[in-house]
Simulated scan of single mutants.
Amino acid sequence: MSFATLNDLPAAVIEGLEAGTLAPYLGPGLLALCNGSTPPADPVALAGVLTARVSVPGKIKNRLTAAAQFIENFKHRKTLVKAMDEAFAAQAVPSPLHRWLAALPAPIIVDTWYDDTMRTALVAAAGNWAEVQGLSQSEHFGTWTGWYDAAGASLPDAAAPRTVLYKPWGGHAPAGNYLVSDSDFVEVLTEIDIQTPIPALVQQRRAALGFVFLGCRFNDQLPRAFARQVMKRSAGPHYAVLAEEPTRMEARFFAEQGITRIAIPLADAAAALCGAALPA
């Protein structure tokens, strides 16, 4: 299989994001655009932070979900949540790209890391938005997602805000919800093929959207599985900013999902996007 590769950011990407026909899909790599102190910005770094707080066997020290499962099994779920809260207590200052995205008329912003940076940018933009996070079944059995308003208060359901910030793996703010251990993901992946863990409003809105992947890598099964299911029945087209040569599995994923790779550094894509004028 082959997939398309571009060496410049297409005008169609900028125009689609500005018009709300393309949705941002964010990964931990976006933290590299932030100045100052930032929380762990990839699974290996996060595993290192967790295992510095709680000792785990050496063979799983760099495997985030396995290390988290060990902590949960032998030190209790509360210990794992506390360690995650401490790891993401550092508040990154939103980058110009975060702030630009927060000003868009985006029906959905998908954020697949645990930091609060995109939430902080949306709060500052003071638009009409709400957040929905994936919930661990070990803490919220039978309830797959939780909704929150800009102040962090729990919402009984979404009232169709202009923008939905969707964090399928949970997040630090406002309630310390994390999908991070092996069992967390097994529970969700058991149901995700039939879309149960994906909020109905996200399913509804994606039908008219394509996705732009920013700061994402797909060299592991988990991010591929979630992206595949979030994209299901979406309109497209889809783009991924990735300067690095994709791995064999990433290239296969891009080809299977019809994702056009934009082979430029994320910082260059951010500069091009932030230099675009938002519609009135």
Rank of each mutant, 00 (worst) to 15 (best):
G27Q: 06
P28A: 15
G29T: 11
G29I: 09
L30W: 01
L30K: 00
L30F: 01
L31N: 02
L31V: 06
L31K: 00
A32K: 11
A32R: 14
L33W: 00
L33Q: 03
C34R: 00
C34E: 00
N35H: 09
N35T: 14
G36K: 04
S37R: 10
S37F: 05
T38N: 12
T38L: 05
T38K: 10
P40L: 12
P40E: 10
P40W: 08
A41Y: 04
D42C: 12
P43V: 08
V44F: 04
A45F: 04
A45Y: 04
L46Q: 04
A47S: 12
A47Y: 05
T51M: 06
A52D: 11
V54P: 01
V54C: 08
S55Q: 13
K59N: 14
K59S: 13
K59D: 15
I60S: 08
I60Q: 11
K61H: 14
K61G: 09
K61T: 14
N62D: 15
R63C: 09
L64K: 07
L64Q: 06
T65D: 14
T65W: 00
A66H: 13
A67G: 10
A67D: 06
A68Y: 07
Q69R: 09
Q69T: 03
F70V: 07
F70C: 13
I71K: 10
E72S: 15
F74E: 15
K75T: 05
H76G: 03
R77H: 12
K78Y: 08
T79R: 15
T79W: 11
L80I: 11
L80T: 07
K82Y: 10
M84E: 10
E86D: 15
A87I: 08
A89I: 13
A89W: 12
A90H: 06
A92F: 00
A92Q: 05
V93L: 11
S95M: 07
S95N: 03
S95I: 03
P96R: 04
L97N: 07
L97P: 06
L97V: 07
H98G: 02
W100H: 13
W100L: 11
L101Q: 02
A102W: 02
A102K: 02
A102D: 01
A103I: 02
P105K: 11
P105W: 12
A106F: 03
A106C: 09
I108K: 04
I109H: 01
I109G: 03
V110N: 02
V110D: 03
V110M: 05
D111T: 12
T112Y: 04
T112E: 04
T112C: 15
Y114L: 15
Y114V: 08
Y114Q: 09
D115A: 08
D115N: 02
D116L: 04
D116Q: 06
D116K: 02
T117A: 00
T117F: 00
M118G: 02
T120C: 01
L122C: 01
L122Y: 01
V123E: 13
